[in-house]
Design a binder for these strands. Structure first.
Lengths: 213, 213
DNA sequence: GTCGTGGTTGACTGACCAGTCAATCCGGAG
DNA sequence: CTCCGGATTGACTGGTCAGTCAACCACGAC
């Protein structure tokens, strides 16, 4: 209600709306969340949301793209470093899990409302999402070429399994189906890489690989 | 319009509505799908949907529970057989993928609208979903106890990664982000087990397993 | 033929909400 | 002080549906 006399208070209403939307979407879900919930959460009038965004959808789009573009950049940076593939994957898993640790609501919204929503938003952003898969597949492909990963599985498939494992763990946290805390976060990074790479690593024992075809 | 003279036609309108709902939900998504879409698809009057179901939600619930209970039974049956853990997992992956092959729309609805929907339905059926994880985790735990799987990862986590990989592949098909066909279906079964078990199998080479704690 | 019951119909209602817009506020330029 | 334009406000509109309900129908019992 009362604006602080000396300060014009919040300089960036747009950012406030975006941040409020994260909370609102995470709490009630995109569909159940009304635009007025966002405005209330941001302590801003209803109409102001439409001053900064064309529609409720555009708010979600903005939130997703902001974050996903960071993810794509980070993956590319990690890949550019001279690391073994296993460590690159560990770094990627770390980044995603740290993102969740830092802002669970944002990650919840992105995963639940976009990444895992095959209708509506998932379809809209399919291209962006696939870029991430492609980047990961590329890391796997190079590792296979140089012999540090075995080639029993296609790079595209390995990328899917790797990213799928991460998302499943995050979903477990989001659902409260899995305990979460500092130790679980670190443990998960190791577990994911350990599970996936154990099946990818070139060092292969005697396993008769009797799979058909 | 015109009922066939000699036949009372459809004996089970309830079933027809359920089947129509699968198509309607798969095509437009649960939220975007109106109850009238279901009725139209079933060639039935709007009000009849409410004669058999209390609400639109109950239709989805019914669809999910019907199928998920079958899944739980099948997993239990597979586990009861005297097979190596790796083959049990292969059988589970096969069953789920065959379910998709047989009725992609139904699986799409279950995955997109329930399993991967952390708000609304996902929360409602969390218990049922977790039962599946628990059953799979149990298979892993037994395999670890008998030594055929190594213990680098907790059973609960392995179950998550395994199921996550399956769901990610199905999602890829649902999104049309992955080619699908007879050969891809069979290939996927092998790939999933190969990826996950490669990291679970007891046969472990020299890897220094420097994971903390 | 008449009656009754359960299945079936679809027009209608009530609630909800995204998006609009005319009015107001505020700070800076002149 | 006045004027201007962008920021801000929130009441209001239009359209959409989920769910209701009174009527209708078909068929078996008597």
């Amino acid at each position: 209600m009362v604006a602080q006399p000396s300060k014009p208070a919040q300089p960036d209403k747009r950012r406030m709306i975006l941040d409020a939307a994260v909370v609102a979407f995470a709490t009630r879900g995109f569909h159940a969340c009304r635009v007025s919930d966002i405005a209330d959460e941001a302590n801003v009038a209803y109409g102001l949301v439409y001053h900064y965004f064309r529609s409720k959808d555009e708010v979600l789009d903005t939130l997703f793209l902001e974050r996903w573009n960071v993810l794509l950049e980070v993956i590319a940076e990690i890949d550019a470093q001279p690391l073994p593939a296993r460590e690159k994957l560990h770094a990627i898993a770390s980044f995603i899990i740290e993102s969740y640790r830092h802002d669970p609501d944002l990650m919840k919204v992105i995963i639940v409302e976009v990444t895992r929503a095959a209708n509506s938003f998932g379809r809209t952003h399919l291209g962006k999402i696939r870029e991430a898969y492609a980047l990961i597949a590329d890391i796997v492909a190079k590792a296979q070429a140089e012999g540090s990963f075995r080639s029993a599985v296609t790079p595209a498939f390995a990328a899917l399994a790797f990213y799928g494992a991460i998302e499943q763990v995050l979903t477990g946290w989001i659902f409260d189906a899995l305990p979460q805390g500092e130790s679980e976060f670190d443990e998960a990074k190791t577990f994911i890489v350990e599970t996936i790479c154990g099946g990818l690593d070139a060092v292969r024992p005697d396993r008769s690989s009797a799979s058909s075809a």
